Computed example of a mutant assay.
Amino acid sequence: MPLWNVYHTPGVFTAEQKRRLAARITESYEAIGLPRFYVMTLFHETRPEDFFVGGEPASVAVRVVIDHIARHNPDQDSRRRTARWVEEILRLDIADIPGVHWEFHVDETSEDLWMINGLVPPPGGSEAERLWARNNATSPY
């Protein structure tokens, strides 16, 4: 359900840093009750000559685009809490990189446009979703 696309210039992340960040992202969602397999993290290395910030090539940059499907923030306060939560997840691996420009945004997509393995996921917080989380796999419900 959460899809994190991490666009970055070369050398920003080692393979171990990518693994660690993807694990932290997944664990953050698992902590709020989502099945681990709902979470996908994709890293897209982008050459500086193809990564522009303010119309100029960026030598050290990270742009994270997050799609949240089925879970929506109902008001500005909850959206701000989500933004702070995302910032905390990312800060550990990004903020201290010398000269880095980094940013993110979160899109919220309708659950009506989402399936996994040909199944409509169970309602959030339902016993079926808890079963999926326990089994870390889909199953008919």
Rank of each mutant, 00 (worst) to 15 (best):
M1G: 07
P2S: 04
L3F: 13
L3C: 04
N5R: 13
N5E: 12
V6H: 02
V6F: 04
H8I: 08
G11L: 07
V12R: 01
F13P: 00
F13S: 05
F13K: 05
Q17Y: 06
K18G: 03
K18I: 05
L21H: 07
R24Y: 10
Y29A: 00
I32L: 09
I32D: 00
F37I: 03
F37Q: 01
Y38L: 03
Y38C: 01
M40S: 14
L42G: 14
F43L: 06
E45M: 04
T46V: 15
P48Y: 04
D50Y: 10
F52D: 03
F52I: 05
G55M: 03
G55Q: 10
G55E: 07
E56A: 15
P57R: 08
A58R: 10
A58K: 01
S59R: 15
V64T: 11
V65F: 12
V65D: 14
D67T: 09
D67S: 14
H68V: 06
H68T: 10
H68G: 07
A70L: 05
R71E: 04
N73R: 15
N73V: 15
P74V: 14
D75E: 05
D75F: 02
Q76M: 13
Q76T: 15
Q76C: 08
R79M: 13
R79V: 08
R81D: 14
R81C: 08
W85G: 02
V86H: 01
V86R: 03
L90M: 14
L90C: 04
R91Y: 06
R91P: 00
D93T: 02
D93I: 02
D93L: 06
I94G: 00
I94Y: 03
I94N: 00
A95E: 06
A95W: 01
A95V: 10
D96K: 05
G99N: 04
F104T: 08
D107C: 13
T109N: 08
S110I: 02
S110A: 11
S110Y: 04
E111R: 14
E111K: 12
L113R: 08
L113G: 05
L113H: 11
M115V: 13
I116N: 09
I116A: 08
L119I: 09
P121V: 00
P122A: 07
P122V: 03
P123G: 11
P123N: 07
G124T: 14
S126M: 11
E127F: 01
E127A: 15
A128D: 08
A128H: 02
E129S: 00
R130P: 01
W132F: 06
W132S: 04
N136G: 07
N136I: 07
A137N: 09
A137K: 12
A137S: 10
T138V: 15
T138A: 12
T138R: 13
S139I: 12
S139Y: 10
S139M: 14
P140S: 07
